[in-house]
């Protein structure tokens, strides 16, 4: 992490969080909305990505809506085994996010697959590798409001 966000950076994060147009020249159009030149937008995006303020710029796929499946999963891992088990879980490319949390169920991760049948298989592989139970917590309903940074 180097450097701080200036007002233009913050405006870029807020505007582009809302979406890029699906056109041949999305950055040019987004730059117009932000009020800067396309080349400056591309330079700043490169820096925001390099510095870790943005994880990526692109499509946010919903594996469930693509015929696949997504679920939150939780495991109760003995604390002395946590790093080893986390590495075993993370080794699966279908695991998207993984957090250590403050609870007896201390490992929380998302499994996303494009082929729905793979979900149970991935959970089963993790259980076989670790000898620990994987509790699947798929969403039943979503009540969503986006997060914004102060511009």
């Amino acid at each position: 992490m180097s450097g701080e966000l200036d007002a233009v950076d913050r405006r870029i994060v807020n505007v582009l969080q809302g979406g890029l147009p699906l056109s041949p020249t999305p950055y040019s159009e987004a730059a117009g909305t932000v009020g800067i030149a396309e080349a400056e937008l591309l330079d700043r995006l490169r820096r925001l990505l390099d510095d870790g303020y943005l994880s990526r710029v692109g499509p946010l796929f919903d594996a469930g809506a693509l015929g696949g499946a997504v679920t939150l999963a939780a495991m109760a891992v003995p604390p002395v085994r946590l790093d080893v088990v986390a590495a075993q879980v993370n080794a699966h490319p279908e695991v998207a996010h993984n957090y250590e949390r403050d609870h007896r169920l201390n490992l929380w991760f998302v499994i996303a697959v494009l082929d729905a049948e793979r979900l149970a298989a991935v959970a089963g592989e993790i259980e076989a590798e670790t000898g620990l139970c994987v509790h699947l917590m798929p969403k039943r309903a979503e009540y969503y409001l986006g997060l914004r940074v102060t511009a």
Binding site: L45, S55, L60, D62, V149
Partner: peptide, 21 residues
Amino acid sequence: MQAGGGIRRIAAVPQHYALGL
């Protein structure tokens, strides 16, 4: 894919941690 919901949106994905959260 976007029309079918397979893409939620095409956008910048912030790192909440790096943004100070």
